[in-house]
Design a binder for these strands. Structure first.
Length: 291
DNA sequence: GCCCAGGGTGTTT
DNA sequence: AAACACCATGGG
């Protein structure tokens, strides 16, 4: 652990090995909406902490954390304790057509995000595009979030606002959500926030229940269908067998260039799905819609 | 003006 | 159960 002096305050940082991992690809892979790249650093907030990450090959330096904080939060957030090499092998043996995608996106991990943030983010994501989702989530954080730990170091203060609690969002009117660009999803957010603030969403159950029971529980909430439920379970609850199918994944399954159907229901289907999504998004010309 | 975006709900066949 | 209209918003 090192400490650098900025503005007269101590700011810790941690450098850890991360062979095979790509911070940038992971944070840009459409599973989270809160990270920005500023002169080579990935800047963002999760779990109420603002950090900046810079990767140098097989190691990365996280500025704004210390050893204990890294172990308690970021190692899990970046999913550093999983054997992705072994999983890639398993997944591509199950679905050999996925080899190109798995190789291309090998540096991508599935993040362990906060369940409440994932829930709100992917409700907003429906029939929406990634830049707009990012903008809306950013406004929620800017207007309703608390200042994250390390806030003072952020180039843009909005980068360092924590995702709002359910209690904070429950006080926002539906009309205000619309002003912030949520569109028709404003009603869903309002209901969701009030339900969560009232304690009537059982996060522990969703985390531990058999997967189909967890799916059913999430889908009972208005605005959450099959796709959003899969995303929330995968990105917010670490349920790696979940397999979100959006329009891009649908396209891939239809073209059969990359396969993917063989993954569905398997233990690490969600990780395979993430490889697929990253590959498709970076090679859209290979997946032109047919007439 | 149209089509599209990490879709879901409600209604009609 | 499958097909359909409808839902806001902004970028191409």
């Amino acid at each position: 652990m090192m400490a650098t002096s900025v503005h007269g305050a101590e700011r810790p940082s941690v450098t850890v090995p991360c062979a095979g991992f790509s911070v940038r690809d992971t944070l840009n892979s459409g599973q989270c909406f809160r990270w920005v790249e500023r002169n080579g650093r990935m800047c963002g907030t999760a779990f109420g902490r603002y950090i900046e990450v810079v990767q140098n090959g097989d190691s990365m330096t996280i500025v704004g954390t210390d050893d204990d904080d890294y172990a308690a939060v970021w190692r899990g957030y970046f999913d550093m304790d999983r054997d992705y090499d072994a999983i890639r092998k398993t997944v591509t043996e199950l679905e050999p057509r996925l080899c190109d995608a798995a190789d291309y996106a090998a540096g991508v991990h599935v993040l362990g995000q906060e369940p409440w943030e994932a829930l709100c983010s992917f409700v907003i994501s429906q029939n929406n595009n990634i830049p707009r989702i990012r903008g809306i989530v950013r406004k929620l954080c800017l207007h309703c979030g608390e200042r994250a730990v390390g806030w003072a170091y952020a180039a843009d203060p909005a980068d360092a606002m924590a995702f709002p609690t359910a209690t904070a969002l429950a006080e926002v009117s539906e009309a205000t959500f619309r002003e912030w660009g949520c569109g028709y999803r404003a009603a869903y957010l309002t209901e969701l926030s009030r339900a969560a603030a009232a304690g009537s969403i059982d996060f522990d159950f969703i985390r531990t229940a058999p997967i189909d029971a967890a799916r059913k529980q999430l889908r009972s909430l208005k605005g959450i269908g099959p796709k959003v439920a899969e995303c929330v379970l995968l990105y917010g609850f670490g349920r790696m067998e979940c397999f979100p199918v959006d329009v891009w994944i649908r396209r891939a399954l239809e073209t059969e260039l990359t396969g993917g159907t063989a993954l569905i229901g398997s233990e690490y289907a969600g990780i395979g799905q993430q490889y697929l999504f990253e590959y498709i998004r970076q090679h859209p010309e290979k997946f032109v819609r047919k007439s």
